[in-house]
């Protein structure tokens, strides 16, 4: 079937998921929300004359940006360490993950937009980044103002005077809700287990740094155990919350962390094994151990990675802030609370 020239003009912004993509288009008399699924497209129309309100809420990104910079710094340090120490394959793999993380961090969602009509309210999922959302809303605003007879500003401001409370907020005051169980309260606070884990990691990094700089012998068992503990601390939140509930931008960060820790752990385990077999008669084993022991960049690199990971984790806990109202009860993990 021949198609006439489309009357829709694409608005800035868009949101892509694995099997879903949301876009917004400007039509002659309506805004068209297009949701592209794998093999189909779904349409929803908001007529300019029906639009009652457009709302945009922009989220502050300070803490997250810092976490991004720390994460990228860790990845770069690890890549350099891996290349310097002759592990180009691991370095290349980690580079791919780091680039993916940087890409996601740059394109991270930082706002939400809604439209209200007489039918109800609807989120505009494609307007999830501030710059494009502002442009798109300005374009819709122009059309909506033309389509509707203007009213005095005082009349319009009446609609914003006293917003109705949320239903569950009304229910909170009388009667008072029962106290939360201790376990639920504990979930909203940073777990001491995690803080202890990161402190352990910090101590391990310090020992490793001392070992590398002072050319002293370290505890060969400490590094593998520390890495395994840290790996568990990263994977447990994944298992508890499910990968689906973790935002896409954080999945990459989690994977980065797992790759880094896994790399260190693999190396550390082999190091411990070689330590045990040091007295073996095999000349090659002794040769490998001697090479590892004298590779100063390797030890410095590992120490840097451990220290940065530990500081990153501690910073994430220090900066994590649970809202006083509401709260999903999600535990605070390496990347802060997973409420958003």
């Amino acid at each position: 079937m021949p198609q006439a020239r489309s009357e829709y003009k694409r608005l800035p912004g868009g949101r892509s998921r694995l099997f879903r993509r949301d876009r917004l288009y400007l039509g002659p008399d309506h805004v068209l929300l297009v949701r592209s699924l794998s093999f189909s497209e779904e349409y929803r129309r908001f007529y300019y004359s029906d639009i009652q309100a457009l709302v945009l809420q922009e989220r502050p990104m300070g803490n997250r940006r810092l976490a991004d910079w720390v994460a990228i710094g860790v990845a770069v340090a690890a890549i350099v360490a891996l290349f310097v120490t002759g592990h180009p394959v691991w370095g290349a793999l980690l580079s791919v993950v780091a680039v993916a993380y940087a890409w996601v961090a740059v394109r991270r969602e930082d706002c939400k937009a809604w439209v209200q009509t007489a039918v109800g309210t609807a989120e505009l999922p494609s307007l999830c980044r501030v710059r494009s959302a502002r442009k798109a809303i300005a374009l819709i605003d122009d059309r909506a103002r033309v389509a509707q007879t203007p009213l005095p500003p005082e009349e319009l401001s009446r609609a914003l005077e006293t917003p109705p409370p949320l239903p569950f907020q009304v229910a909170v005051s009388p009667p008072s809700p029962p106290a939360l169980p201790v376990a639920a309260e504990a979930l909203r606070r940073p777990s001491r287990l995690y803080v202890t884990g990161f402190l352990t990691l910090l101590a391990l990094g310090a020992v490793k740094m001392y070992t590398a700089l002072a050319a002293a012998r370290s505890f060969p068992w400490a590094l593998p155990i520390g890495c395994l503990v840290f790996l568990a601390l990263t994977i447990v939140p994944l298992l508890r919350q499910g990968v689906k509930n973790i935002r896409g931008s954080r999945v990459v960060a989690v994977l980065t962390s797992i790759v880094i820790t896994g790399s260190i752990g693999t190396y550390a385990l082999s190091w411990a094994t070689s330590e045990n077999s040091r007295n073996a008669q095999d000349a090659n084993t002794r040769k490998i151990y001697a090479m590892l022991e004298t590779a100063a960049p390797l030890h410095v690199g590992l120490a840097v990675v451990l220290l940065v990971l530990a500081i990153w984790g501690l910073l994430a806990f220090l900066m994590a802030e649970e809202p006083s109202t509401g709260g999903s009860g999600a535990p605070l993990t390496l990347f802060g609370s997973d409420r958003l």
Binding site: L54, E58, D141
Partner: peptide
């Protein structure tokens, strides 16, 4: 810290 704004149109009345 969230910055929010609402554009209201006559259709609301």
């Amino acid at each position: 810290g969230v910055m929010a704004r609402a554009l209201v149109y006559p259709a609301i009345f």
